[in-house]
Design a protein around this nucleic acid. Structure first.
Length: 441
DNA sequence: AGAGATCGGATAGGGTCGCT
DNA sequence: AGCGACCCTATCCGATCTCT
C-alpha cells in the first residue's frame, strides 16, 4: 500500500489527466490516447480511492454513476424559464421572421447564427464554482424534474467545468444513432420491445430511476445557451457557443454565422441534404439573432423568444387508408372528428389515428371514409392528414357528416356562433364532462 | 373601429417508464 | 397487462393586446 501523501498526489494527477482526456475525447472529438489507456487511468484512480476513501471528492470522475436507484424524481422550479421556439417550415416564413425583426429593431439587415436543431429533449444544468450541482428536465418550462443523478451518468457532461464558474446552461440530451441501433440489436436478441426512435428512447432513458441503467444507454448532450451570458462578457451567440466549448461542454460543431435570410436559407437547404450523414437526429435548423444586445432588445413572448425561430426540415409523409371516424367530445362539449387509419410507419412511429380538428377541416379537404389519404407528422410528433387522393376512389367512399346529436348524451348540437369552426354539444348536463369519448360509424 | 398579433387553455397524437 | 405520468409539440379558439 502506497503512503497517504503519495496517494494524494497521484490521485490529483490522475484526475487532471482523466479530465483532460475526457475533454479531448468528448468535446473536441480529438482523442490523444486509446480507450484502453483511458480505462487503465480510471482503474488506477478507483483503486487508490478505495485504499483511501477519505480522498474521494464529489467531482472525481469515478463518482459519475450512483450506486443505487433513486426513489423518485423531485420537482425543480426553474429559476429562469425554459422557453420553446416558434416553428417555420418555409423560406417565406423565415423572411417574415426577418422582416419582423428588422422592423422591431429599425435596421436594414440583421446577422443570424444558424445551428442544427437536435431532436432530443432539453435540459437545464446548474454549476456552482465549477461543480455540477443540478440537472433538470424542461417539463412545462416552469417546473421540471430533478435528474441530476442521470445527468451525471452522461459521460460527455463534465462534473467540473474547466473554469470555476457559477453558471446555468441549456442543452439537448440525445441518443446517438449508432448507440440506438446497437441498443435495439441487443433488445431484439433478448426479445425485448424495440425502441421506436432515438428521441423517445432518450426521453425514456433520462427518466429511468437507476443511473446505472442510464450509464449503459450512452446518452450524449450538446449545449447552446448560457443563462445571463452578459455576466461572462459575451457579446454574440457564436461567441457564446465558443465559450461553452472552452469551459468544457460539447457544442454541435456545424453552426454558421449568416448575413441575412439568403445565407439562412442556404444553410437550411444544405443540411436538409446532409442531415442523414450525422450520428444524431436533427429535425431542422435554429436561427438566432447573433448580437446578444439585440436579442435582449427583442425579448420574449410568453411562449418563445422573439429573436429565434426553428426552421424545420420537411415532414416525412406516408399514404394510408382512412377506415373510420371517431368522435371525441371534450370537456367543453367540443366535438372533434378523429380519423381512424390503417396503421402506417411514419418517421419512426406507427400512426393509427389523426385529429381532423373540426368538420370545416373535413369539408375543405374533402376527406371521406375509405379514402386514401396522405399523412405527415407535424414537428415529427403530431400526425395529421395533408389531403385525400380522390383519384384512388372506388365509389364505396362515404361522406363524413357532422352528427345531428351529441354522440355521448344524444343531446342537441350546434355552433355557438355561425363563424365558429367548432361544433359543440349544447346539453349542459352531458356526461362528456366526466367520460369523454363516444363511438360513431 | 378594425385588423392583426399574441395570450393561455384545451385537446390532440405516439412512445417510454414506473407502478400495481 | 393496464394505467397514469411525462416527454415533445401542433392546432384551434376565445380573450386581450397593439398598431394603423
Amino acid at each position: 500500500m502506497i503512503p497517504f501523501e503519495e496517494a494524494k498526489r497521484r490521485i490529483e494527477e490522475l484526475r487532471k489527466e482523466i479530465d483532460r482526456h475526457a475533454y479531448k475525447y468528448y468535446v473536441l472529438d480529438d482523442p490523444e490516447i486509446s480507450d484502453v489507456e483511458y480505462d487503465r487511468l480510471m482503474k488506477e484512480l478507483t483503486e487508490l480511492e478505495d485504499q483511501y476513501p477519505e480522498l474521494k471528492t464529489p467531482d472525481s470522475p469515478t463518482v459519475r454513476v450512483g450506486l443505487r436507484p433513486i426513489d423518485s424524481f423531485k420537482e425543480v422550479v426553474h429559476e429562469h424559464r425554459l422557453f420553446s421556439l416558434d416553428n417555420t417550415y418555409s423560406a417565406e416564413e423565415v423572411m417574415q421572421f426577418d422582416k419582423r425583426i428588422r422592423e422591431a429593431l429599425n435596421v436594414d439587415s440583421v446577422q443570424y447564427v444558424c445551428e442544427l436543431k437536435i431532436d432530443g429533449l432539453s435540459i437545464s444544468l446548474k454549476y456552482e464554482d465549477g461543480l455540477l450541482l443540478r440537472g433538470a428536465t424542461r417539463g412545462n418550462g416552469f417546473v421540471g424534474e430533478d435528474v441530476t443523478e442521470n445527468i451525471k451518468a452522461i459521460k460527455s457532461i463534465p462534473l467540473r467545468l474547466r473554469k470555476d464558474l457559477s453558471i446555468e446552461l441549456r442543452g439537448e440530451v440525445y441518443l446517438p444513432k449508432d448507440v440506438f441501433n446497437e441498443l435495439n440489436k441487443v433488445r431484439a436478441e433478448s426479445n425485448l420491445q424495440l425502441f421506436a426512435n432515438p428521441r423517445n428512447a432518450a426521453a425514456g432513458t433520462l427518466r429511468q430511476l437507476d443511473p446505472r441503467e442510464v450509464s449503459k444507454r450512452k446518452l450524449s448532450a450538446f449545449f447552446y445557451q448560457i443563462v445571463e451570458p452578459e455576466r461572462f462578457g459575451l457579446k454574440s451567440q457564436s461567441e457564446q457557443l465558443e465559450f461553452l466549448r472552452t469551459i468544457g461542454l460539447k457544442v454541435e460543431p456545424n453552426f454558421e454565422v449568416a448575413d441575412g435570410t439568403e445565407d439562412v436559407i442556404e444553410f437550411w437547404k444544405k443540411w436538409s441534404g446532409l442531415k442523414s450523414s450525422l450520428n444524431y437526429a436533427v429535425d431542422g435548423t435554429v436561427v438566432k439573432v447573433e448580437d446578444l444586445h439585440l436579442q435582449q432588445e427583442l425579448g420574449y413572448t410568453t411562449k418563445a423568444p422573439r429573436w429565434a425561430i426553428a426552421f424545420k426540415f420537411p415532414a416525412e409523409q406516408a399514404t394510408t387508408k382512412l377506415t373510420g371516424v371517431t368522435l371525441g367530445v371534450g370537456r367543453l362539449g367540443t366535438i372533434t372528428p378523429v380519423a381512424e387509419l390503417e396503421p402506417v410507419q411514419l418517421a419512426g412511429t406507427t400512426v393509427k389515428r389523426a385529429s381532423m380538428h373540426n368538420f370545416d377541416f373535413v369539408r375543405e379537404k374533402d376527406i371521406r371514409i375509405f379514402d386514401t389519404v396522405i399523412v405527415e407528422k407535424a414537428g415529427e410528433i403530431i400526425p395529421q392528414i395533408v389531403k385525400s387522393i380522390p383519384d384512388k376512389r372506388t365509389g364505396e367512399e362515404q361522406r363524413i357528416d357532422p352528427p345531428s346529436q351529441c354522440p355521448v348524451c344524444g343531446g342537441q348540437v350546434g355552433k355557438e356562433r355561425e363563424e365558429d369552426g367548432a361544433l359543440k354539444g349544447l346539453n349542459p348536463a352531458c356526461p362528456a364532462k366526466l367520460s369523454r369519448r363516444g363511438q360513431f360509424f
